[in-house]
Design a binder for these strands. Structure first.
Lengths: 204, 204
DNA sequence: ATGCCCACTATCCTTTCGTATAGTCGCCTG
DNA sequence: CAGGCGACTATACGAAAGGATAGTGGGCAT
C-alpha cells in the first residue's frame, strides 16, 4: 500500500515514515510541503492514502486539501494536525478529507487508522466527535443579534458602512445604528476597536 | 545510554522513540507530560539525556525546564519544539538547557545531536544561531519604518489619529500621512483593514 | 389590548478620516 | 554638491463615521 506523508517538520515526518515503514505492506513516501506533495502525487501512480499536515507551507488552511484531493483522485486524503482545534476536524471532513489525525493519538492506533482510511472509511478519533463544542457561539457572540453579527463581520473585513449596507440590502443609517450598539456591547470606542475585539476573540 | 523523551503528542513521541530505539546503545523511555517526566527522572537512575517538548502540559514556558534540570542533575536536559520561535532557543540555553531541537530538523541529525548533548556539548541547529536576531520582524513589518510601526500599533488599539498624535507627540496630520502610507503598503482600503491585516499577521 | 423589545428607517449635525498639494529639515549616496 | 528619500508640518476639502432624537412595524408576553 503506497502512502504519502507530507509534513514540514523533518523530525516528525522521518520518524513517522520510519515507524510506518516497519509494516510489511506499507510503502512510504514523504514530502516537506504542499508543492512537494503535489509533485509526488502527480508523478503517475497515485497513493492509496495521502496524509497532509494542516499547518505546512502551501496549505493555507484547507485550501491545500482540495488541491491534493483533486490530484490524488480517486484515492483519499487525510489531514494531520498538532495543534488540533476541534472545529478543524469537522471542517476538514466537510472539505472532503477521509479523516483527521491529531498528533496526540497513539502511534499504534495510527496504523489502524491508516488501514481504515485507505479502505475508504472515514476516521476521526472519538474524542473529537463526542466532546461536542461547548462554545458554539464564541462567548462574545452571546448577546449579539444575528444582524449585529452580520454587521460585525463586515467591520472585520474593513468594509465601510455603505458597503455593508449594500451587502445586507439595508440603509446605511441602519448600519450606523448597529455599529453603535456593537461598540456599546463590545465595549469598544469605535469600529476599528470593535473589529479587533472580535478578531481577538477568534470570531471571524 | 538512557534517554527520556517527553512529549504530549503520542504520535510524535512513540514514533520518535521507535526511531531512536533502533540505535543499539540507546535505551528510550517516554513521558506524556512534565509530571510524568519528573516521576520517571526521580525513579532513581538518572537519564543521560532528557528531551522536553516546549509546549506540553506542565511546562509553562521554560519553568518546567528548571524543574527537570534540577531533578536530573548532573545530566543534561534539552528542549524540543514544533513551533520553534527563534527567540525561545536562546532563552532555553540561557535557562540551562543543553540544547534546542526544532521538529524541523532531520531525524538522522537528531541522533548525532543526542550523542553530542549526552557528551555535554551544547547543540543548536546553525540556522537558529546564525540568523542572530533581526527581530521576529514579522515579514509584514519589513518595509515599514519604525514610525509607521508605532502608528500601526495605535491603529490596532483602535485609537483615533488625534490620540496617536498625542501618544507620539506629533501633529494629527502627520499621523494621517502615516496611516495613508500604511494602507498603501499593507494593501488595505482603510485603517480598520490595516489593523486587521496587522493582527492577522500576528503583529501586536 | 397594552406594553416592550427588536430591527429598521429617517433627519440633523459634529467629528473624524482620507486624500491632495506643497513645503521644510536632515541624512545618505552617487 | 546635487538629488533622493524619510520624517514631519501645513492648509484645505469632500467623504465617512459617529452621535442624538424620533418614528414605524413585527413579534411576544402579562
Amino acid at each position: 500500500m503506497k502512502i504519502l506523508i507530507a509534513d514540514d517538520h523533518d523530525l516528525v515526518r522521518d520518524t513517522l515514515a520510519a515507524f510506518l515503514g516497519r509494516e510489511k505492506d506499507f510503502e512510504i513516501d514523504t514530502a516537506s510541503d504542499l508543492a512537494d506533495a503535489l509533485d509526488k502525487i502527480n508523478a503517475k501512480p497515485r497513493y492509496h492514502l495521502v496524509l497532509l499536515d494542516y499547518s505546512m507551507p502551501g496549505m493555507n488552511g484547507l485550501e491545500g486539501l482540495a488541491k491534493a484531493k483533486e490530484a490524488n483522485e480517486p484515492w483519499p486524503v487525510a489531514i494531520m494536525s498538532g495543534i488540533a482545534p476541534k472545529a478543524i476536524a469537522q471542517e476538514a471532513l466537510d472539505a472532503g478529507a477521509i479523516g483527521f489525525l491529531p498528533k496526540t493519538m497513539a502511534a499504534n492506533s495510527m496504523i489502524n487508522a491508516i488501514r481504515f482510511m485507505s479502505a475508504g472509511e472515514t476516521f476521526v478519533p472519538v474524542q473529537f466527535m463526542t466532546a461536542e463544542e461547548p462554545e458554539e457561539t464564541n462567548e462574545l457572540a452571546k448577546g449579539l443579534s444575528p444582524r449585529e453579527l452580520e454587521v460585525l463581520s463586515g467591520l472585520c473585513r474593513g468594509l465601510a458602512n455603505k458597503e455593508i449596507a449594500r451587502e445586507l440590502d439595508l440603509q446605511e443609517v441602519t448600519i450606523k445604528l448597529h455599529v453603535k450598539t456593537l461598540c456599546r456591547k463590545l465595549d469598544a470606542k469605535n469600529r476599528t476597536q470593535a473589529a479587533m475585539i472580535a478578531k481577538e476573540a477568534g470570531l471571524f
